[in-house]
């Protein structure tokens, strides 16, 4: 259930036993194989058996490491989200521009990341809408990581006076998040590329950001 990559666990929990290390490698190999097959075939078509075979392991190895296929899929998505959140945090800390530019750069990093593996994203979208209490919680935790980055960007803008102090940050973040996520439909159905997606996001941000700014920009 741990969303963090093995490398991180290894440093945190060093020294590892040889057996512990082997288990981590197995897990990593299964996650990598899972990610590849989910991306190539979609969730339904990628079987546990095929994933095990692709990783050069037995089906039993999958069940020794994950509850079931759904769990493996969730772990793949969580690992991805962690990687992406890390990239976004770096991008956000490097930008010292206005809130609009920072948001665009941070979210464009997300688009660039997911455009490279669109079928996986599509499978994640389908799974995301299927209701299942446990999965909802995992997916909410995943989203939380990225949403909190957006929150940080807006709070910083409030702190440095670019945005008014009486704005509803949660409301604004929710809307930006909805806009960002919903644009993936354009990538999945209409073949939008990175430029198309960020262009659309730019226009969405321009609908809501000016009214949050301290001075109404012309």
């Amino acid at each position: 259930m741990n969303p963090f990559p093995a490398a991180l666990i290894a440093t945190a929990a060093a020294p590892m036993t040889r057996r512990g290390l082997a288990k981590l490698r197995t897990r990593e190999a299964l996650l990598a194989a899972g990610k590849r097959l989910f991306t190539e075939r979609g969730y339904e078509e990628a079987t546990v058996r095929d994933i095990a075979r692709a990783a050069g392991m037995s089906t039993g190895a999958v069940f020794a490491n994950f509850t079931d296929k759904a769990d493996l899929f969730q772990q793949v998505l969580s690992q991805d989200a962690w990687t992406l959140a890390e990239t976004m945090r770096q991008v956000a800390s490097l930008r010292d521009g206005c809130v609009r530019e920072t948001l665009l750069t941070v979210l464009a990093a997300g688009y660039a990341f997911h455009l490279k593996q669109l079928p996986l994203l599509r499978a994640a979208c389908a799974e995301g809408w299927r209701q299942d209490a446990a999965r909802e919680v995992t997916s909410r935790d995943r989203m939380r990581q990225i949403i909190s980055i957006l929150e940080g960007v807006l709070r910083k803008a409030v702190a440095n006076g670019e945005m008014r102090s009486d704005i509803d940050v949660d409301l604004a973040v929710d809307l930006i998040w909805h806009a960002y996520q919903s644009n993936y439909r354009l990538a999945i159905y209409d073949g939008f590329d990175l430029e198309g997606l960020t262009g659309r996001l730019e226009r969405q941000l321009d609908l809501i950001l000016p009214s949050l700014a301290h001075r109404q920009a012309a």
Partner: peptide, 24 residues
């Protein structure tokens, strides 16, 4: 609600060439 979110999930399904009308 369940019927509606089911429909949203099916929006992203793989099979079936004829797409549903996606939300929006």
């Amino acid at each position: 609600p369940r019927l509606f979110t089911t429909y949203l999930a099916a929006n992203f399904e793989w099979s079936d060439g004829e797409p549903l009308i996606t939300f929006g």
